Amino acid sequence: MGSVRTNRYSIVSSEEDGMKLATMAVANGFGNGKSKVHTRQQCRSRFVKKDGHCNVQFINVGEKGQRYLADIFTTCVDIRWRWMLVIFCLAFVLSWLFFGCVFWLIALLHGDLDTDYKDDDDKSKVSKACVSEVNSFTAAFLFSIETQTTIGYGFRCVTDECPIAVFMVVFQSIVGCIIDAFIIGAVMAKMAKPKKRNETLVFSHNAVIAMRDGKLCLMWRVGNLRKSHLVEAHVRAQLLKSRITSEGEYIPLDQIDINVGFDSGIDRIFLVSPITIVHEIDEDSPLYDLSKQDIDNADFEIVVILEGMVEATAMTTQCRSSYLANEILWGHRYEPVLFEEKHYYKVDYSRFHKTYEVPNTPLCSARDLAEKKYILSNANSFCYENEVALTSKEEEEDSENGVPESTSTDSPPGIDLHNQASVPLEPRPLRRESEIGSRR
């Protein structure tokens, strides 16, 4: 089982795998120059863009038009607004034209077009017409509009002379109601789609790998820009990579689940303020055997998904993003964004995407760390350097704002901070800030 798991979770494809794949392509008759073999020097295209759209195009789909027309309502909801407006206008105009032609044909076959009612006051002739005051196609078209929109100006009306005319008036009224219901329903469904809710759900630009509770963890940050909550919010993550099976089958995008606390339930989050999602790199993680150097040379993509129900409509929305291997910062942490004021908490989104480097973060893999092949620094050293990194950030910001350097908390000259780390230190809580992250 261990060997199978290692093969499945191998992220960085070796040169031997690339040569094996190329040999397979030639042997199977696919070596026509169009096949692409992804190596370390040639990274694959992003499968999920940063804005959440999937970078996929469908080609050679059989009976595409028929399949889309069979699900016309979903098609109308998914198309762009400009095409929705075109369909909206065409549906009414074509129905008016169709029934206008029908009423014109009825008048033509009944002989109503030969009668001039402007110079004739004989009401008996008017009563013999199928539709009064309809003696041309324009008049028939206007009567069709008046019937379907129930305008009723009063000059044109159907008589009991022709039952077919009466039937067409009733039929057009029913068709008009159906068109109204369909168009209004599609427009309302399109307006109520929770897709735009994703514009106020954000992911951090970069993911980070750092120590948390004595273990290497992959972390990324999510935030909600609205005050309205995302009900039943939960997160998922998958690692996408290519691999070759033991039988020699090439899988271009193998999807591997990344555990973010599904078993323990901590994948469900209360997204009021930005939260750091934590994936513990343990023996079940696809990143277990990867060191910093392996991450730098790897070719994979981590897709992160945030799902929840919109509070206003109770409709489920899904926000997506992805991180390539070069977008994962090893040995970094996110800057705090949640600050405790006197009577409330304040979230500073200008710090949302910012990170700071944490010294002495192990550069080895989580496996080597678990097997004690890498000796961690003293816990006080880690905490102290973590505090120094934050303090230096604040000093830089104070210097930019014009604060005198004498007010900063610099260490005395001639003292090495790293050498001082081995000395037991008193706890130094942050002056006014605390970061709330997901705790395992």
Rank of each mutant, 00 (worst) to 15 (best):
E394R: 09
A25N: 15
M84E: 05
S273M: 06
T23P: 08
R351N: 15
G223P: 00
V61P: 14
N198M: 13
P194E: 06
P163Q: 05
H353F: 06
P336S: 15
M188E: 02
G223N: 06
H343I: 07
Y68P: 09
F103I: 14
T316F: 08
R333V: 14
G18Y: 06
C162R: 00
H53D: 09
A186F: 06
C319F: 14
F92D: 03
C130V: 01
S321K: 12
E146H: 03
H229N: 09
A165R: 02
S406W: 09
K125C: 07
H418M: 12
K372A: 13
D71W: 12
A165H: 01
K215T: 11
T200S: 14
S95H: 02
C101E: 03
F73S: 15
Y250K: 15
V77P: 14
S173E: 02
I59L: 14
G214P: 00
S273N: 07
L94C: 05
A139W: 00
I106A: 02
K292H: 07
D299I: 04
S434M: 10
G308S: 09
S434K: 07
T409R: 12
P274W: 11
V403S: 12
S35K: 13
Q148F: 03
S434Y: 10
L109E: 14
Y117R: 01
E16D: 07
P252D: 15
Y68H: 09
P413W: 07
D284K: 15
D119A: 01
F137M: 03
E371I: 05
V388Y: 10
E307F: 05
K190S: 14
L69T: 10
E232C: 13
I436A: 13
F203S: 01
S242C: 11
V175W: 08
T149A: 09
C177N: 05
E433L: 11
F270Y: 11
E335F: 04
D299W: 06
P359M: 10
Y384K: 05
I184G: 09
I375G: 15
Y334V: 03
V61N: 15
G33M: 13
V126G: 03
F262V: 10
C177T: 07
S411R: 09
I295G: 00
I164W: 12
A189W: 15
I178R: 01
Q318L: 10
I269E: 11
E397P: 09
L430R: 13
Y384S: 09
V187R: 02
T313N: 07
S422V: 07
A237T: 00
D348L: 01
S136K: 02
C43A: 13
C76Y: 05
Q57P: 03
K50H: 06
S411C: 10
V235F: 07
E311Y: 12
L218V: 09
S321G: 13
I244E: 15
K292A: 13
K64S: 09
N32W: 05
T313R: 09
I178H: 07
K372E: 14
D254I: 09
H332M: 06
V131P: 03
G29H: 09
R80L: 05
S350L: 09
A22E: 08
S144I: 02
P252M: 15
S228I: 13
L97K: 01
I269K: 11
S408M: 13
T361L: 02
C162N: 02
V175I: 12
F155E: 05
C130G: 03
P404A: 08
S246P: 14
F98P: 02
L417E: 15
G52M: 02
P412D: 15
L142G: 03
F155L: 05
S285H: 00
D122A: 02
W220I: 06
K227N: 04
S136P: 02
K196W: 08
F270R: 04
Y374K: 14
S13G: 11
C54E: 15
G261T: 13
V222P: 00
V170R: 01
D112Y: 01
Q238S: 10
E133A: 05
I281G: 01
A379F: 03
I11D: 15
I183N: 05
T200V: 06
L329S: 04
W83R: 08
A298H: 07
N224V: 04
D368K: 08
I72M: 11
E435I: 05
D122L: 02
A370V: 12
C364Q: 07
K354V: 12
R46Y: 02
L425E: 13
Q293I: 09
K125L: 15
G414D: 04
M191F: 05
G62N: 09
K342M: 03
L94M: 03
G29F: 02
S365Y: 00
L97F: 03
L21Q: 09
S406Y: 08
K227G: 08
A70N: 08
L216Y: 07
E133K: 04
W83G: 05
A370C: 08
G52P: 00
R212F: 05
M188L: 14
V12N: 15
E146I: 02
V48G: 00
A140G: 03
E357P: 08
V310R: 10
S228F: 04
V4G: 08
L216N: 00
L287Q: 01
A325R: 09
S399R: 10
Y356M: 15
I277L: 12
L271P: 04
V26S: 14
F203R: 01
I72L: 11
Q255F: 07
N326W: 03
A70H: 08
K20F: 05
S144Y: 01
E400Y: 05
Y250Q: 15
